[in-house]
């Protein structure tokens, strides 16, 4: 792959707060025009990593480049070319939509901030509501406006920190369509999320837990790397079975999915044995390919036992 195509390239990033290691020796690369998903449980270090990438936090250790600029010394250059959408709504609630966008336009030195703000408002479909206070918008509209504000200065890199938290499914779908359109036009996107369906919409994903990067690659690659063998168990009254299986040797993960149970293990032979042992009338064991969530739950439980 061509080096100039790497937009984010960081190596060995570490950061601790009050002696607590939040990001531990993290390295990652993101290529231009790709949507890179950043997954992991709460407090895993996703936000801290994103903040280190855009110069809001200084890493304790490690080095790297973002858009070709050093993350330790050229933060201003990175900021000029990066749109960062924070987890909480961060536009001014007491400014109107138009005033917020004009403010951003002026900060980024756009040629005609008013015209650019008007353009962005039209694109967002907020034409008639330009003079409404940003704080009065609904959750979905706030999120659209925040994204619109981020891309108005035409950044080369978009950092989105849990952008769809608290947004309804329709708005989420529209949001992702928009992200794909932007990536198609050449924008690179790093997006953190909790949602598996969103993870599957990313070109590549990185899974982080307890500050450590546990897996990286495309969905298919991550599932293949996991070397997980999975059975789907169906039948009535699976609750007791689930409890028993959790303590059965050779079973790495048990998770209910609706009326069914996902049972997974890295020891394929052992799991086959378990399947035979617990097969009973009314309880069907079926082999299935593991899905992304199986892999992540397994990664997380392993990470927890490794880093208590």
């Amino acid at each position: 792959m061509n080096g100039a195509d790497i937009v984010i390239d960081v190596e060995g990033l570490s950061k601790s707060f009050d002696g607590k290691l939040v990001v531990d020796n993290l390295s990652m690369q993101v290529r231009r025009g790709r949507i890179h998903g950043f997954l992991g449980p709460n407090g895993s270090g996703k936000t801290t990593t994103i903040r280190m990438l855009c110069g809001l936090l200084t890493p304790d250790k490690g080095r790297g480049r973002c858009l070709g600029f050093d993350i330790l010394t050229q933060q201003t250059e990175i900021k000029r070319r990066t749109g960062y959408m924070t987890q909480a709504f961060s536009l001014y609630a007491d400014l109107t939509i138009r005033e917020n966008l004009e403010f951003i336009g002026r900060i980024y030195g756009l040629d005609d901030p008013s015209a650019r703000a008007r353009e962005a408002i039209d694109q967002l479909g907020l034409t008639g509501r330009a003079d409404q206070l940003a704080g009065e918008l609904s959750g979905g509209w706030k999120q659209r406006l925040a994204l619109g504000a981020c891309i108005m200065p035409r950044p080369q890199l978009l950092l989105l920190d849990e952008p769809t938290a608290g947004v309804d499914p329709k708005a989420r779908r529209d949001f992702w369509d928009e992200i794909h359109q932007l990536a198609h036009e050449g924008l690179t996107v790093l997006v953190s999320t909790h949602y598996m369906d969103e993870a599957e919409r990313c070109h590549e994903i990185a899974y982080i837990a307890y500050g450590r990067l546990l897996a990286q690659g495309t969905t298919t690659e991550i599932i293949a790397q996991s070397n997980l063998s999975t059975y789907v168990v169906s039948g009535a009254d699976l609750g007791d079975l689930a409890e028993t299986l959790k303590h059965t040797p050779g079973v790495d993960m048990v998770a209910p999915f609706g009326a069914k149970l996902h049972v997974a293990s890295r020891d394929h032979a052992a799991l086959d044995g378990v399947a035979r042992e617990f097969a009973a009338p009314g309880i069907a064991w079926e082999r299935d390919a593991p899905n992304l969530e199986d892999v992540f739950i397994d990664l997380m439980s392993r990470a927890r036992s490794n880093y208590p």
Binding site: M1, G3, D9, R65, L67, R81, P153
Partner: peptide
Amino acid sequence: MSASTDPTGARGEPRPAGFASHPLDE
């Protein structure tokens, strides 16, 4: 991920086609 072994490769300024002329270059 070949780039991890070649960090110098990223030093060239990437200029995506769609965003070639940047208003903020100073």
